[in-house]
Design a protein around this nucleic acid. Sequence first.
DNA 1: TAACCAAATAACCACATAGTTATACTTGCG
DNA 2: CGCAAGTATAACTATGTGGTTATTTGGTTA
Lengths: 105, 105
Amino acid sequence: MKLAPDDLERVASLFRAFSEPTRLAIIQEMKDGEKSVSEIVGELTTTQANVSKQLRLLYESGVLTRRKEGTNVLYGIGDPIVFELCRLVCDKLNRDVAKPKRLKF
Amino acid sequence: MKLAPDDLERVASLFRAFSEPTRLAIIQEMKDGEKSVSEIVGELTTTQANVSKQLRLLYESGVLTRRKEGTNVLYGIGDPIVFELCRLVCDKLNRDVAKPKRLKF
DNA sequence: TAACCAAATAACCACATAGTTATACTTGCG
DNA sequence: CGCAAGTATAACTATGTGGTTATTTGGTTA
């Protein structure tokens, strides 16, 4: 059974959330629990505005939780699928690296 | 342990391969086995050039196999990770749809 | 109220890339 | 050889979006 165009777009859209290194770095920061925006910014090399923007995108993709605490906003991984996806992809990349390059001649 | 920038880029890059509806549609065409470029083109609404281009991208991402047979070229799913990734994402989307929308007011 | 901090938004630029048309390459066959 | 079919590539356009700076919003505290 084939997915309708709308559904393909939804699936693509979720993959797209994981398709930028900065967003993956942000996700990585939260792997041991919630973090505030400024904590995340402190660990990365990009601006607060950019982190905020990417967090919004991830949140709207449905993979993060968001919670206000005083003047801070805490974000966290909201769906274990995040870990599974990242593990699958990392495993594959490790497998591929392990494979000796086939010499072309 | 955090991934180095290079590795984040690799991971992102693999996710990016799945981040376009057209590529997902192409992948879907091969789920029951190899297909030639023209067979795939016949099932989709885009041009042969575009299918060829996206197949190349997928092949270079390491998720497809490629095999010449006469004047045809057969592409196929080359790593079961493809099915697992798609299943995970589809399951999540189904779960989210099942959830009654929280009314905002 | 004012001053201050965290976070979000606005406006913008630069770059990547999906898709197109047109053309080249490759293989099989008369 | 010459032609046809299947695939790949080139050149180009249009669009989306990552990242930036500057500004705004909202909550806290003096």
